[in-house]
Amino acid sequence: MSQEWPLWEIFIRGQHGLSHRHVGSLHAPDAEMAIKNARDVYTRRNEGVSIWVVEAKHISATAPGEKGPLFEPSESKVYRHPSFFDIPEEAGHM
């Protein structure tokens, strides 16, 4: 079997000014073709205005085992959320 085209992760920014979002993967021989393939595969229904591609092997990720130390400490910081504060209605919209 000949060498398979590398795997790319595809990120697309939609119409409404949101950030690029991971939409899926595909194969392509290089970055330029990955962008074109992403255009053809992942924007068939007018889903995007901008495409990022990253070769899958270049993505670094958090390890599942670190979920506790990484993410649980923020659970107790409830004061970061606006709903933590009771503001009287008389004070108006805030």
Binding site: M1, E4, L7, G24, S25, L26, H27, V41, R44
Partner: peptide, 21 residues
């Protein structure tokens, strides 16, 4: 679309340690 769906599914399987080829 069906080709696309095949592609999405192969991609999902590829995360389990097998290649599309």
């Amino acid at each position: 679309d069906e080709a696309g769906h095949g592609l999405y599914l192969y991609s999902a399987a590829e995360t389990l340690g097998i290649t599309r080829d």
